[in-house]
Design a protein around this nucleic acid. Sequence first.
DNA 1: ACTTAATTTTAGGGGACTCTAAAAATATTT
DNA 2: AAATATTTTTAGAGTCCCCTAAAATTAAGT
Lengths: 217, 217
Amino acid sequence: MTYSEENYLKIIYHLSNNSGKGIATNAIANQMESKPSSVTDMVKKLADKGLVRYKKYQGVSLTDEGRFKALMIVRKHRLWEVFLLEKLDFSWDEVHDIAEQLEHIKSEKLTNKLEEFLDFPTEDPHGDPIPDSEGNIKKVDKKLLSEIPAGKKVICVGVKDSSSAFLQYLDKQQIALGSGMEVISKEDFDLSLTIQVNGKPITVSNKIAANLFVKIL
Amino acid sequence: MTYSEENYLKIIYHLSNNSGKGIATNAIANQMESKPSSVTDMVKKLADKGLVRYKKYQGVSLTDEGRFKALMIVRKHRLWEVFLLEKLDFSWDEVHDIAEQLEHIKSEKLTNKLEEFLDFPTEDPHGDPIPDSEGNIKKVDKKLLSEIPAGKKVICVGVKDSSSAFLQYLDKQQIALGSGMEVISKEDFDLSLTIQVNGKPITVSNKIAANLFVKIL
DNA sequence: ACTTAATTTTAGGGGACTCTAAAAATATTT
DNA sequence: AAATATTTTTAGAGTCCCCTAAAATTAAGT
Ligand SMILES: [Mn+2]
Ligand SMILES: [Mn+2]
Ligand SMILES: [Mn+2]
Ligand SMILES: [Mn+2]
């Protein structure tokens, strides 16, 4: 598999909600920052290799083999993120971009040795579960902060967006994985939330709340 | 720089004996396991970018910028080799192939953090010096075992060939970096050597001796 | 010096991946 | 249901990197 094929596969995996329907060409193009016509080409190639199912105009879904390959890339990505944070002292907003490169290194032995070196971590620095070498992945039950009604106490368990910009915003607000928070009120007009964090109330936009995963206590 | 450009640059660096002459197209093609016509194409591209000097039929040499870029790739390659050996318990015959991939990861910060994590190693697992972040590289004085006259006592300080096959042969003979050895005799006919290692005399072919770096005691 | 051999370059082309523009299919509105 | 908008695919082309075959140049042998 080439670098490019791997990126497509991973993005198709990430877009796969178990909604039964195929993933749209457009959705893939947006994530890949490429054009729909490029996606059509690549998707045909992946279908020829048996990694995705594809029918014209019907979207794409992963085969078992494709899903496994995608999971192995996700596994490497997240293990490297842990390595960068834990061993090399990178911050959580820096690790994703470098892991985008490291995830393509091909050596099963390296991946497994790295996992052992890191003491078999189960989550990456952004709260996402790390698949094991057989492709098993823990299903964590988490909700978006934007879906929590006022009055509930929650704990922050993950981020949907791992971009540097978003994570640095969270740092500024002193929100980290494990932070407890309580939803005080929700504004009907713009869906912004007022939440209690670190003893202080702060207001966050819907865009922020829709990128923070929490667990209800 | 692309993956391919980096590999060419590194190979040109490794072929650069300070003999004043340019590196031959054929020599590069052999190392790259590609064809001379492909080399000509790439070399023109590298010349356009100011990384090599090139005149038709005259061979190629690195510019200062090209040499620096090459040194940074060599630096990454060797640091990753140390990481794989020291931290992940790989053996010295396994690290080179994986480092061939890791050397292309682009992040100066990662390279420097890795170097720090490894405690600023000065040599890789095969005895080769590691360039620092400014591109300074230690010139180690070492000779090929094949050039040592009978009677001399030497210590093994490096290997010219880092292939798995050669390194596993050395393991079998219990020859490692730091092994002391004495040249007992040299056969005129095939240039094979009889050397004393680990208290026992063994005979090695010229091909072996021409790939072992030693220092005279 | 002249012939032969080896090296290097050019010419032309193929595969992988991407793009724009146009055509086809599907989805949405009226 | 027809018209319009959106999505998706096709057609054609460009870049990168590699190849083979043929031509040009340089090196070696007699
Ligand atoms: Mn990530
Ligand atoms: Mn990637
Ligand atoms: Mn190496
Ligand atoms: Mn390489």
